[in-house]
Design a protein around this nucleic acid. Structure first.
Length: 468
RNA sequence: UCCCCGGUAGCUCAGUCGGUAGAGCAAGCGGCUGUUAACCGCUGGGUCGCUGGUUCGAGUCCGGCCCGGGGAGCCA
């Protein structure tokens, strides 16, 4: 038997049969009454941006008692025939023969989601109800489709998805402050004879934290399965209060064996182009909405990225461009300093006006695991910078030579005892390999035009905020 | 953590020189209409973030605190 329930998306696309009654379920966006004896109820179920118009006649038994009392947010099941709409605004509509109220809104004048523009800041304060808005629902669909596109890209290219651990004991991964994971009683901590906290009494018999990156672990699988990636949550306990940082965010980290930095950059470019292409094809309605309401020219921007070559430049080249820029930078530019936000913005927003890949940074400002170049002063690192959001990818070729890795760890003051297994990878069949981290929320922000990554994740975690 | 801006009705905001609270939307009621963020009229709705101070009188001026946003740093 055919399922009589159809989504708004299918009904509006004309995919629901017109020779029989069907059902649609969702939440009321607006209700308008006509004295001709009918009410128009706009019903949203998340399957599309556009609502289904349910036309409810006053001959329905619950018309006066219930339908005339519907307010935004009420949950309904409507049954009726799908017909071509006689009015503008929608291709099809439902002529309801029954409308069942599944869930009322208790106190309509306090229901926060109204058919009007809300600020994104306000919506963050009602994070449990904001998915009922167009903008957050659309961002949620984009997030889903982008994730699917990324998985599909890797699958089609012979990569394996590796679920690296969320709890780690690597205490110096170097990517930021970490959240501690412990079952010790904070009010009664076990002590060693020297008075320090005795972590051998803790759950893992050692200090443990939430991961700041799956990279080190995924390298082990890379050096066995050749092409792998992680896609999962990542945690940084930094007190960062910006539009592009979260304490809990999702990151995609591919790692490829027998590969150098150039292969890495090529992979990054292919991944982004493939994903954006798929998104443009599969989420055209939502992207058009973002183009109209959030960032004018968004679709043309994405089309342009898919069609053009990413600009690649060496760090040294970037420095000379910035030195010749004639801009009055707050932080002066010279070889050896890290690029500041204002420098990255100039490069990507003014100089090339597209994503740009900056490669081969001074080794003094980069992590210990990045491969030392032959020039003795740079490492094979790269950042992909995007207009408006800044760094969306950070990656590198990894140092595969044990002696060099050891000396780099010594320079960084890292205890090699903590990295015994990581060093083993360089002792047993080491090969050149490379990878990068793609910030998922930053990418969503970029493709939607949303200015804040807090609107690109369902329940954002930031300093002082984990209420929902 | 630092710098800047802000906090007034459910939401978005106005509030002049310090004189006792306003609009639009939402909600409730009524009118009108195959309507389209409908429209028109009426009604209800306020701890002016909290706290202390100055003053005859504070949404408004001053101090402290809390919360939010933007920018910087850290980074994805």
């Amino acid at each position: 038997m055919r399922d009589p329930v159809f989504s708004a998306r299918d009904i509006l696309a004309g995919k629901a049969p017109q020779d029989t009654t069907v059902k649609v379920r969702g939440w009321v966006r607006t209700r308008r009454d006509s004295k001709a004896g009918i009410s128009f109820v706009q019903l949203v179920d998340g399957s599309s941006l556009q609502p289904v118009q349910v036309v409810a006649p006053n001959t329905l038994p619950n018309y006066a008692d219930e339908i005339l009392k519907l307010t935004a947010g009420c949950a309904l099941e409507a049954e009726g025939r799908i017909v071509p709409s006689p009015a503008k605004g929608q291709p099809f509509e439902m002529q309801a023969s029954a409308v069942k109220v599944i869930g009322w809104v208790d106190n309509p004048d306090s229901y926060p989601i109204q058919p009007k523009p809300h600020t994104l800041e306000f919506l963050r304060d009602v994070a449990h109800l904001r998915p009922r808005t167009n903008v957050i629902a659309a961002a949620t669909r984009v997030r889903h489709t982008l994730a699917q596109a990324i998985h599909r890209f890797f699958d089609e290219n012979g990569f394996y998805w590796v679920n690296t651990p969320i709890i780690t004991s690597s205490d110096a991964e170097g990517a930021g402050a970490m959240f501690r994971v412990s079952t010790l009683d904070l009010a009664n901590l076990p002590r060693t004879s020297e008075g320090a906290i005795d972590f051998t009494k803790d759950f893992f018999a050692r200090e443990a934290f939430l991961t700041v990156s799956g990279q080190l672990n995924v390298e082990a699988y890379c050096l066995a399965l050749s092409k792998v990636y992680t896609f999962g949550p990542t945690f940084r306990a930094e007190n960062s209060n910006t539009s592009r940082h979260l304490a809990e965010f999702w990151m995609i980290e591919p790692e490829i064996a027998f590969a150098d930095l150039s292969d890495d950059a090529t992979l990054a470019e292919r991944l982004l182009k493939h994903s954006f292409r798929h998104l443009l094809d599969a989420r055209a309605e939502d992207l058009a909405f973002f183009d109209e309401r959030i960032e004018k020219g968004l679709v043309a921007k994405l089309e342009g990225i898919v069609a053009s070559e990413f600009v690649r430049m060496d760090y040294g080249e970037a420095i000379s461009i910035l030195e010749r820029a004639g801009e009055n930078f707050e932080f002066p530019v010279k070889w050896g300093v890290d690029l500041q936000s204002e420098h990255e913005r100039y490069l990507t927003e003014k100089h090339v006006k597209r994503p740009v890949i900056v490669m081969n940074y001074p080794k003094a400002i980069k992590a210990f695991y990045m491969r030392a170049n032959d020039d003795g002063r740079t490492v094979a690192a790269m950042d992909v910078l995007a207009p408006g959001i800044g760094e969306i990818i950070g990656g590198s070729q990894r140092e595969e030579r044990l002696e060099v890795l050891d000396s780099r760890m010594a320079e960084h003051g890292i205890d090699r005892e903590h990295y015994g297994w990581y060093r083993d990878l360089r002792r047993y069949g080491t090969v050149p390999h490379a990878g990068f981290g793609l910030g998922f929320e930053r990418t969503i922000a970029y493709v939607t035009g949303l200015a804040n990554v807090r609107d690109a994740i369902p329940f954002p975690r930031t300093p002082g905020n984990a209420r929902y």
